[in-house]
Nucleic acid binder design. Structure first.
Lengths: 244, 244
DNA sequence: AGGTCATCTGGCGTATACAATGAAGGCCAT
DNA sequence: ATGGCCTTCATTGTATACGCCAGATGACCT
């Protein structure tokens, strides 16, 4: 009944494996590993990602790593400088503003349709996600909380039925995680309190307008909690600093 | 004469040029060549894009072609099926609806900010683009007109100053070109008449609300002009056809 | 002593070669 | 004659090897 794929043992240490279980799935797994590590801030903005180091860690050759890195670059999670390699993107203040403005427009605009389409099943799943997020936050697992928060917003957008916009929201949420890593204050993380639960309530009641307004405030609150101080590490302007 | 050769540039007779002027720019040029060919409908949806054929045409090895193909796949201009190769994406009716809904939300939502930020210089450039588009349309150069129309919308979005949303609009416009290729009626192309000129007028007057409403109607008109008849070439449902 | 230049090295970019897989066509059996 | 199976081929996917450029370090000159 189950045609078992010859996958059960993967040899991580042996680079000499002629037969690979399923390359595509393996690549997808590696992609998610790196993506999660970035979103969870285990890889901090500015961290360099050397190709052969990654290829050795994951047991695939540089070719596959390059493909994954390029995909991440197109999603703007990593920056690829022409002959210097890959590094985790360090968002600028302008990019942060753009991302949150975009989220305002898209996520709020999606709320009415979400309220129209949401099912009881969706509500259950969202409540579970919100609960897990709160638990993680209470347990001090900020990395997990950030990831769950992004996943919540992404899941919400997908209910709208518009796959294209949902994909956009996915990417905006990923980038928001990066922005929180750079500009967020520790201990004052976004999406705290019971905002997500309240939002679910409005959606469950079918009140799309209210949900949109609430989402707007929610995002504004997150953005306002950022301490966007453009660190002018470039050209520190010694004259101004030392009064010269 | 149907024998189209998408060879934009000569190929230097020697494929063995180890000394390349600039690889990155060359790749970018190839990317734009293929992208333009798709947007201009010189490569029609469903057309297969074999890697070695492309590599031979452009004089680079398959490695570079793969990178470009994957980038196009992430932008959903080409579809990459696991071991069958690349082909120009054939959008489904659902995708078409999603894309136009997304354009409604983003492009209309951007209009107020565009009206606020637009400069005299922008106005001049947009008018030039609109004029060239009309000229192309009148000359019967549909390919050029489609490309210029997409470029107009993309340029408009970029005035908003939000690079992230402008990138989204870029991709939506590219995909719209594909959609027009599949579902559009010949001779009744979108963005005809003087819609674009009227839009520029509203923006120049700083009337963002009016511009947004006009853009909404404009996009609705394009979408309405499509003949979305889902050709069920997949699984013709012989039972129903033959009453079996 | 400080600045500048040459050299050296580490890492990326590209091309080529090999292996695996899906598709198509031919052959045989019924 | 037709349907199923097997062989063959074409095409992608992956790995490896080589070349080039940027950064760093050290020495030499001013």
């Amino acid at each position: 009944m189950n045609q078992r794929q010859p996958e059960p043992e993967h040899r991580p240490s042996s680079p000499r494996r002629g037969k690979d279980g399923d390359g595509a799935e393996r690549h997808e797994a590696i992609y998610r590993s790196i993506s999660d590590a970035i979103i969870e801030h285990r890889l901090k903005p500015g961290a360099r990602l050397r190709e052969d180091a990654l290829s050795e860690v994951f047991g695939v050759s540089r070719t596959g790593i390059r493909k994954i890195l390029q995909r991440l670059a197109l999603e703007q999670l990593v920056t690829l400088t022409p002959r210097r390699g890959a590094s985790v993107t360090r968002p600028t203040a302008d990019e942060a503003k753009d991302v949150f403005d975009a989220r305002q427009m898209i996520e709020c605009g999606l709320m009415p349709e979400v309220a129209r389409r949401i099912t009881e099943e969706d509500v259950q799943e969202l409540r579970t996600m919100a609960r897990r997020e709160r638990e993680a936050l209470r347990a001090g697992e900020q990395s997990t909380a950030i990831k769950l928060s992004a996943a919540f917003h992404a899941r919400l957008a997908r209910i709208s039925g518009n796959a294209t916009l949902a994909d956009f929201v996915d990417r905006l949420c990923s980038r928001s995680s990066l922005i929180l890593a750079v500009y967020g204050n520790a201990g004052h993380l976004g999406c705290e309190s019971h905002d997500h639960d309240d939002l679910i309530g409005y959606l469950e009641a079918g009140n799309g307008e209210r949900a949109a307004a609430f989402m707007s405030r929610h995002l504004k609150a997150i953005e306002a909690s950022l301490s966007i101080v453009e660190e002018a590490d470039e050209a520190p302007d010694l004259h101004r600093i030392f009064g010269g």
